[in-house]
Structure formats: structure tokens, C-alpha cells
């Protein structure tokens, strides 16, 4: 038990040292930007991982929550000239409320049907972003979203924003980990295994599924907020159905039910397109091929796969 705790604390420590080291040593702002995107995507993947990896419920509409977070802050800061720090709690509350309203009926579904239900929700929200021009700016979206500032301190430099995003990632990780280690986490895993059995032993499966859905939506909303103030303009294309699928892919590729897996998946799916620019026309084909290969070779996802390889080589070494 205590060795587990030690390992956990150590991994947070290493994580934080890595982030700090990257922040201090990297001067190239392009690299810092890519790392910032990895952070934003990690928050998305962490949230969905709670829902998919732990509770076993799929959502193919998570880009909608991501978009709602981004649009709320864009509208409030650009249109109404309010402070982003006021927009952030509003965005989170709105996203949670929408997740509650959407989750209440859809979480009664399961498997393919839940997939379909959330997919439909994602598409509706995307259409609203695109067509409700008077509020959302339509296809051209919003420009001139202000950078974040805290008193005299500005997050407009790549480095500062990088720190802000990765601090949020760390907070999300700690939050998720604490939840997973609690009775709630156990109950979520029991729902994943068998909702019927879980209900039979007294777990309120409906409420719990709804709550974890709201949590994962809230994290997506926070990611949307960070995204909007980072790139300073948003348009509906960033929050369409392909993005929902990409978030699911991050979780699956990284390895379900693993916090570090979510980070790994988010990193791979952010970096791959950057690396593959060289293939120009063939970019998407190579991208798809790599994802297929990963799933064929490591069907449990990167984290489990790498651990397995490590353990196997370790055993051989000691024998």
C-alpha cells in the first residue's frame, strides 16, 4: 500500500520535473506550442478515459463539450468583453448542465446505442456552431479571443501558456487518480465489468454514470477554454465529429483505464500529424496505417503493451 503511494508520488514528481525541464530548456516556440496542444489533448483524453476506460461507457460526441467550452469563453470575452476568469466557471457550469441534460436519457442506452446517441448529440451541437451565425459567428467563428492574464502576469508567451496548460493537466491527473482510488473508482470499474451485477450489490449505477459523464464533459470544457485562449480564434471545424473520434482514438491507442495511457495517446495523436507532414499527399494513409499497426501489435494499447514488453525482457534478463 505505502509502496504504491510512493510510486504514485514519485511518478507525479518525475512528471513535474519533466514538464519544468521542458519548459526551461525548450526555446523554440513551435515545440512549445506542440507540447501545449499535447497538454490540451491530454485533458480531453483524461476526461474521456474516466468515462470509457473506467466506467465503460462510450461517447462519440465529446468534441461538442470541447466546443461548448471554447465558444462560451469566446462569446463572453469577445462579444460581451467579460473577463476570461469569469467565463471559465460559466463555461464549466454550462458544459456540466448540458452533459446532465444529454446524459439523463442517453446513458440509459448502452453499447452501440450509446455510441449512436452521443454521436447524434455531437453532430447537432456542431450544426448549431455552424448555423447559428448571430451567436456563434457561423462558419468563420470567432477571432480576437484575448490572451489570458492574471493581474500583471500575462500568459501570452508560449512558455507561460505551456506552464498553465500543463499545470491544468497535473491537476486533472491528480483529480482523476484520487477518484479512481476511491470507492467511486471501484464502483465505476464494477459498472464497466457488469452493470447488472453492480446494481445488484447496491451501486447506484445510473447516478454514477451520469456523474462521470458530467466530469468528463467538464474536463473537455476546460480543454476548450484553454484552446480558445491559446489560438485566439475558433471555428466549427475544430469541434466536428472527426475530433470526437480522435479523442476516442487517443484513449484507445494509449490504453483504456490508464491515466498515463491517456497522456501517451494524446501525445502520439498530436505528434503524428506533425511528423507526417513530409509525406504530404500520403499523410492520412500513413497516419491510418500507423494506428492500425499499433492496434494489431499492441491490442491493449500503448501503455499495457510497453509494460508487457518491459516485463518480458526483464524476466528473460533475470533468468
Amino acid at each position: 500500500m505505502s509502496s504504491k503511494l510512493l510510486r504514485k508520488t514519485a511518478s507525479y514528481g518525475i512528471f513535474w520535473i519533466a514538464v519544468a525541464a521542458a519548459g526551461m530548456s525548450i526555446d523554440n516556440s513551435y515545440y512549445l506550442q506542440v507540447l501545449t496542444f499535447i497538454g490540451i489533448h491530454s485533458i480531453l483524453a483524461l476526461g474521456l478515459n474516466m468515462l470509457m476506460g473506467y466506467a465503460g461507457q462510450i461517447s462519440l460526441g465529446h468534441a461538442a463539450f470541447y466546443g461548448l467550452g471554447a465558444y462560451t469563453t469566446a462569446i463572453m470575452t469577445v462579444h460581451y468583453d467579460l473577463s476570461p476568469w469569469l467565463a471559465l466557471p460559466c463555461a464549466i457550469c454550462l458544459v456540466i448542465l448540458v452533459a446532465f441534460i444529454v446524459g439523463l436519457p442517453t446513458l440509459k442506452l448502452s453499447g452501440y446505442y450509446l455510441g449512436m446517441g452521443t454521436l447524434g448529440f455531437g453532430m447537432i451541437v456542431h450544426i448549431i456552431f455552424r448555423e447559428w451565425t448571430s451567436v456563434t459567428g457561423g462558419a468563420s467563428g470567432y477571432v480576437g479571443i484575448p490572451p489570458l492574464e492574471l493581474g500583471a502576469f500575462s500568459f501570452s508567451s508560449s512558455r507561460n501558456y505551456f506552464y498553465l496548460v500543463w499545470c491544468t493537466v497535473l491537476i486533472s491527473i491528480v483529480l482523476c487518480q484520487r477518484l479512481i482510488d476511491s470507492r467511486i473508482g471501484r464502483a465505476l470499474r464494477s459498472i464497466h465489468d457488469s452493470e447488472h451485477a453492480s446494481k445488484a450489490v447496491g451501486v447506484n449505477t445510473r447516478n454514477l454514470k451520469l456523474q462521470v459523464f458530467m466530469l468528463s464533459a467538464a474536463l473537455a470544457g476546460v480543454a476548450g477554454f484553454l484552446y480558445a485562449h491559446f489560438v485566439s480564434f475558433i471555428s466549427p471545424g475544430t469541434f466536428d465529429f472527426i475530433v470526437s473520434i480522435r479523442i476516442v482514438t487517443m484513449v484507445v491507442i494509449g490504453g483504456m483505464a490508464s491515466i498515463w495511457g491517456a497522456l501517451l495517446g494524446a501525445s502520439l495523436l498530436t505528434l503524428l500529424p506533425e511528423w507526417l507532414h513530409a509525406f504530404s499527399d500520403f499523410e492520412m494513409i500513413v497516419y491510418g496505417l500507423i494506428l492500425m499497426l499499433v492496434m494489431i501489435i499492441l491490442p491493449q494499447g500503448l501503455t499495457r503493451g510497453i509494460l508487457d514488453i518491459y516485463e518480458r525482457s526483464h524476466k528473460k534478463y533475470f533468468k
Binding site: R183, R186, R189, S190, D193, S194, A197, V201, G202
Partner: peptide
């Protein structure tokens, strides 16, 4: 029985105390 096979024996027991 409907136990939760992937979870440890300890976790299975603790889920019983969920309420």
C-alpha cells in the same frame, strides 16, 4: 455469483460495502 472478475478479491469485497 456475478462477481467482478477483473477486479481484485479485495475490491470485490469493498464494493459490497459501497452503500
Amino acid at each position: 455469483r456475478l462477481i467482478f472478475p477483473p477486479l481484485s478479491v479485495m475490491d470485490n469485497l469493498k464494493i459490497g460495502a459501497y452503500t
